[in-house]
């Protein structure tokens, strides 16, 4: 309808500005839903941490905080490279965008690798909630605090959901990479890169909260 309608602007929009604002707002609204999605788990965590402070304190010490720190580093780096990917896309540098997308993906995959390794050690340590759960063989005080399993239930629920979001993020990055490679983006039109970037940073923020909540429940004693 509008004379300035280019092929990059979907039919329902008047122009590229409207389209860009709409997709950016759409992603933000989606991220709000994500906050509330994780919010349910954060509520459960808060309630039980207040109810069982000692259990959480001791159970948390059986998570490897070095691994957690390394993984936080990895994710923060990936956020930086994602920001650079958007930056490169804004400047219309196709090759550079592709490189940064790949680096971001590699970092994301590394995060999941470390996470997988941690899960594996939890499995061999019998710390996965269920009939095989057993903290006694690692710590003689566990018999006095029978509710430690709750901490690990929350640990797996929260990090599992986060890892699932990372997988979706990697899927989005793959899609972005293909699109970039095919030259679909330009200085004028790079909104998908920006919007996927928002998602990636959000998943990073979730981890920024999960890390201290799960790994750093008072390590001073």
């Amino acid at each position: 309808m509008s004379e300035t309608h280019s092929s990059l602007v979907a039919h329902q929009f008047d122009d590229g500005v409207q389209q860009k604002q709409a997709t950016t707002l759409g992603m933000w609204v989606f991220l709000i839903t994500e906050i509330m999605f994780f919010g349910g788990l954060i509520l459960a965590y808060t309630v039980y941490r207040i109810k069982y402070p000692e259990e959480f304190h001791h159970a948390s010490k059986h998570l490897d905080y070095v691994m957690g720190t390394v993984n936080t580093c990895i994710l923060l780096c990936s956020s930086l490279t994602m920001a650079f990917a958007v930056h490169a896309a804004q400047e219309g540098k196709r090759k550079l965008t592709m490189i940064f997308i790949v680096v971001t993906m590699v970092l994301g995959a590394a995060f999941l690798g470390v996470k997988g390794w941690e899960y594996y050690t939890k499995y061999t340590d019998h710390l996965i909630p269920g009939p095989n759960y057993d903290l006694n063989h690692l710590w003689e005080g566990a018999g006095l605090l029978p509710k430690t399993q709750l901490f690990f239930s929350l640990y797996f629920a929260m990090t599992g959901l986060h890892a699932f979001h990372m997988l979706i993020g990697l899927g989005l990055m793959t899609w972005l990479f293909v699109k970039t490679k095919r030259g679909r983006f330009s200085k004028e039109y790079f909104n998908p890169v920006e919007v996927c970037g928002l998602y990636w940073h959000f998943v990073d923020i979730v981890w920024i909260f999960l890390f201290p909540l799960l790994y750093l429940v008072d390590r001073s004693h």
Binding site: I205, I208, S220, H221
Partner: peptide, 25 residues
């Protein structure tokens, strides 16, 4: 996390996390 702050540990940790999140946002 290694400094004995007792119940304040969580507040410090959350204050730092919120700062980090705000920077990213």
């Amino acid at each position: 996390a290694f400094v004995p702050l007792g119940p304040f540990n969580i507040y410090v940790a959350m204050a730092i996390a919120i700062t980090k999140a705000v920077l990213v946002v």
